[in-house]
Design a protein around this nucleic acid. Sequence first.
DNA 1: TATAAAATTTAGTCTGACCTAAATTTTATT
DNA 2: AATAAAATTTAGGTCAGACTAAATTTTATA
Lengths: 220, 220
Amino acid sequence: MPEIITQSIQDYLKHIYELNEHGGSASTNDLAARLNIAPASVTGMLQKLASSKPALVVYKKHQGATLTKSGEKAALEVIRHHRLLETFLVTTLGYSWDEVHTEADKLEHVISEDFEARMAEALGNPTRDPHGELIPTADLTMPADKSRPLASLRTDETATIQRVNSRDPNLLRHLDELGLIPNVQLEVIAHSTFDNNLTIKSGRKTHVLGLNITTKIFVI
Amino acid sequence: MPEIITQSIQDYLKHIYELNEHGGSASTNDLAARLNIAPASVTGMLQKLASSKPALVVYKKHQGATLTKSGEKAALEVIRHHRLLETFLVTTLGYSWDEVHTEADKLEHVISEDFEARMAEALGNPTRDPHGELIPTADLTMPADKSRPLASLRTDETATIQRVNSRDPNLLRHLDELGLIPNVQLEVIAHSTFDNNLTIKSGRKTHVLGLNITTKIFVI
DNA sequence: TATAAAATTTAGTCTGACCTAAATTTTATT
DNA sequence: AATAAAATTTAGGTCAGACTAAATTTTATA
Ligand SMILES: [Mn+2]
Ligand SMILES: [Mn+2]
Ligand SMILES: [Mn+2]
Ligand SMILES: [Mn+2]
């Protein structure tokens, strides 16, 4: 019930945050799937997080969980660590963007605030990680994001890739090969009504991308 | 009983290794003191480590523990991580040598072999950490060390500091201020029979050092 | 709107890693 | 060698964070 935010709790909070971003509250099953933990165990943890002092989540039976202010701070803390680490791994150790998630997922829980500060400093206080995702600020607020999914564009629309919201190494490697990475410009050449495929042109290359890809790429 | 070497076990093995280096086997109490764990708990863990397959320690009731071959490999693995991390923190993030122990103590358990390899590469495969301690090789053998404690020198002897065997930040900061760091040359000016103080000259400075310091500094 | 399917919770266990208190053994000192 | 002190082990917990199996509740579908 006290103030100890374990590694395990950090993971719960991080995933609740991400689920809250999309739909409303994070469901037991979605959390269980993401955390690779049995749904029954998730219920138990949510009950604990909801009744801790201070409460980290708001939890109503059968209705999933949302973060309280303290819960959100704790989540942003972990997410800041994660995204700074990813950036650090890429720029100082030559990792590629598809390799950093796994490593950051472990390191994020153990680095000190000093380590965090030194990284941020060394990297020039970056605002986005290698996938283009926003890095929470040092005072733990998440900057606003105005990007929209590539999937929502239609023929003749033009845009710039801002972030790729996926941790699937295969997808990331694939996109890297196609040159579809943050800051790259593209134009929608065609949209297929039936399967929602988009034909896009980027540089001198043209690609036909399915929903599985176009919902993961966010543009501006 | 199986092959899972938890964070906790890694800590036990690391400390058993260090205790084995000095005297013979690592006693329950010494381990308890170093690990900040009750002696009774240490006994329990030693019994487990001794009866795991493969056994990680050799343990005889009331006679402490030594490492088996597998135990030693696992220990050297952690120590290599630790010392590479310390070096990395100093050279890429500007840590000072008194700050690195704490951070490395947490990171050593979670970095991947890939991370280890990238660090070693980036640092040019260093053989010693910032304190001058030897870094186990990539194939997990510990290079031989021929240094002897500064405390064993007598008047007129001359030597070079090779390593400082302490994790006490205050001592490390103090030595840093005195300029007594690895690779620095020194000469013993006097030895006091009663308290074993040594008067040493290094550069143009002279210091009188007690046993508490001279047993921590190793020279060659 | 009944009923089947899916989601979620409850109940009961387990394991790792710790703890304290009470033996027991070893070691040191007279 | 007897006895006191120190070291170590045994016995009997606790606690976090999982799990499975069996309810229960909600949601979807006929
Ligand atoms: Mn932080
Ligand atoms: Mn990322
Ligand atoms: Mn390693
Ligand atoms: Mn060191």
